[in-house]
Structure formats: C-alpha cells, structure tokens
Design a protein around this nucleic acid. Structure first.
Lengths: 206, 206
DNA sequence: TAGATTGTTAATCGATTAACAATC
DNA sequence: TAGATTGTTAATCGATTAACAATC
C-alpha cells in the first residue's frame, strides 16, 4: 500500500496509461474500451478496469472511456496539473542530459538551478541557467522553495547532497546516483539506477 | 516466469544484490548471513535465502554466505563474466551520457560504435569512437556481430532503428526512447523510461 | 430494445513471509 | 558439543484474472 491505499503495482502502471492515452488523443480517438486499450497497452481489460477504478468511475457501461476526459483525470492523478520547482545537482553527463531534456518543462517541471563542484563547469549556462557552485546549494534552498531535487552527483557525494536537500524541505528526490539514499519516510525517492537496468538486460540475455 | 523459470520479481532484485555484495567486499567482509544482509539491503532474510536458492546452494548452515564466492556467483548469474559488444544509436544528450559513462566498460560492455543522423555530430569522437552516419548502421551490423543496441534516438525513429538492429541479429535492446518497441519474443528489451520515472515521482508526491 | 461494456465481487495465481528440521 | 544459520516447506498475503449483474 501507498498513497491513499493505492498499491505500488498500480502506481507504476499509471505513466504507461498516460503515454497511451496521449497517443490516442493525438490520433483523434474519442473513446476507448478496456478491451481495445488492452490490446494496445498489453495489460488485461480486467486489470485496466480495476486500475482505473482505484481513482473513480471514469467509464460508462456500453460505451467505454472518453479519451480526453480520462487523460484529464490521469493528469490530475499524476500531479501534472501543478508545477514542480526542480534543481539539478551534478552537471556531468547525466545532469546535463536531464537539464537539456525539454520534455520535462512541458510536463510542469520547472528547472530553477543547477549546481556542481567542478570549476570548469561553474558559470557555464545550460538552457539559460548558469551552473552554480555547490557551496551555494544550502543558502539557495533557504531562500527558494524547491519541490524536487535531481541528484546526478557521483555515488560518494550523493548522500551528503541528499541530506542538504532534505534538511531544507525538499520532499522529492529523483536519484541517478547508483546507490540507495537514506531519507525520512515522508520524503519520496524515485531511483534511476542505470547500471541496475543494464545488469537486468545482461542477466536476461545470459 | 522467465529465463529458466526464475520470476521477473527475483531477476529485478539481482542487481541490488550485486551492488551490496560489491560494497561488502570493498569493506573487506568475508562472510554475511541472510539476517545481516537483510538489515542492509532491505529485503527480508527469508526472501534473500529464497532468491539465492533459485540459483544454487551458496550458503552454509551456521556460517552464512562467503561474500567473495557469492559475488562471483552473482557475476555469473548476471552475465558479467563475458563481454557484450554494444553500439549506441542516437548521440544526443542521453546517447552521449551513456557513451561517456565509463562504468559500463568495466562491467564488460564494450562500446563498438555510435550512430546519429545529425551532420554536426557525425565525425565527432566520443571516447575515441567516431560518430558515424546512421545510414551505415545496416552495413555495419552485417559486418560485425553486436550483442546489445542502445537506442537513444527520438521516439519517432526508435522502432525503425530497432527493426534494423533486430533484422541483423542484435538480441538485446536497451531502450531510452519513451515508447514500447515491438520485437520478436527472443529479443530482450530493457526500457529506461525517464519520463515514466518522473511521473511516478510526481504521482507519489501529489 | 438489444448489444456493449463497465464496476465489482469471487476465484485464481504468484510472491512473500514464517517456521523449522537439517547441518555446519 | 551448542549455537547459528541455512535450505525448504507450509502459511499468508497481495495482485491478477475471470465472471457477471448493472446499466448505458
């Protein structure tokens, strides 16, 4: 269980619903049945109906689901109707890649600042945002409310950075460092462990 | 079920075992009990014993597990004792970040080539590998056996690139494009859907 | 109305946890 | 030997699938 009693298994499927509903809308489809969606998305029709019913009665018997309405609901469920202020800590390869990924801005994630330790990077601008010295991270956070910290620093520094974020009220962490961070239970962590992902692939191929 | 009857739930935990065992070895620990590992890694002791027993009897009653031996076994299970030849298709932000990530080489993933469509990128070298025109992808694959294709192209081109890879015998795909690729069932796909991950975070925070 | 499809309950399946005999 | 800890079976828990009455 998690978040109003919705299981993690369900939550992990929601972004995929969002992705497919967006595609349906782009293809000008007005409505979709659980059976039809099932064939596209690869979940069973039964599972789709159960998943959606965790959040409300969005469908209509004999008709199915209205694509536009369902996508609107999904936007609300996923928190995409509000803006999140974000910062990136670590402007190496991954940090820069995330900073340059314009799609996130469109979804409502506003990048407010980028920090690094490397003197060669400090002062350089990425998409109009100047990379700052990480020494200013703490004071920056004391002045400005930030929702999500995106940790792209090396493993060795990740917990230290994380502590600074959490101590200054940052409640969401998107962690690209290859380790498990320790945080109070009210703080939400979402990990992107690239090497874990690659090892899963090589395991399945072996 | 999957891969010799090992469930996906188990497989997804294996990289984490690998990560923690590596750390234990770096800390010069000779042995570890399931109970002790449980406290560090966050799985139950029971689950750890069950997971490991999918692959063999690596432990010893009254003693626990030998860290070095268990890590060796984990390396074999994860396919890290052999080399994988890889190529990256798409040398944008993500493609470059992956190309520059030295850790993967150490794990046995040998980057053989990088492809892109952008004339401004073609010819540039990343870690001694010159970015080639994607028009040469097909003929390159016909000459050289590649195990894993790393797809970092925009969504719109991802399936096309994937088809070229699969038609030339590439059996593993590490997919960074935000979509689900269609492949024959013998081909293994591991997705890194960054936007799905970010949406999961924002959902949990909402 | 008749057909289609939902919402929801019950049945099944799979994964996790608990328990304990085996044994180092 | 006595204590510790595994490997493994049984019990529990949770997630998925099937079924169908409700109803658009």
């Amino acid at each position: 269980m998690n978040k109003n009693g919705i299981s993690m298994a369900v939550i992990k499927r929601l972004p995929k619903y969002h992705r497919y509903l967006t595609e349906l809308l782009n293809n000008d489809l007005d409505r979709i049945s659980s059976k039809d969606l099932s064939q596209r998305i690869g979940f069973t029709a039964s599972q789709i109906r159960q998943d959606l019913n965790c959040f409300g009665d969005f469908g209509q018997q004999g008709y199915g689901y209205n694509v536009k309405e369902l996508l609107n609901q999904m936007n609300i469920i996923l928190g995409l109707t509000k803006e999140f202020k974000t910062i990136i800590i670590g402007a190496g390869n991954i940090g820069q890649a995330v900073a340059n990924y314009g799609k996130f801005e469109k979804l409502g994630f506003n990048l407010q600042a980028i920090f690094d330790t490397n003197p060669k990077l400090i002062g350089i601008k990425i998409r109009d945002i100047e990379i700052q010295d990480i020494d200013f991270l703490d004071s920056f956070l004391k002045e400005k409310h930030i929702d999500i910290g995106i940790i792209c620093v090396p493993r060795i520094n990740a917990q230290k950075v994380c502590d600074i974020l959490v101590n200054n009220g940052v409640n969401g962490i998107w962690n690209f460092a290859p380790m498990d961070l320790v945080v109070p239970e009210e703080v939400i962590i979402e990990n992107v462990h690239l090497s874990d992902s690659l090892l899963t692939l090589s395991c399945l191929m072996s």
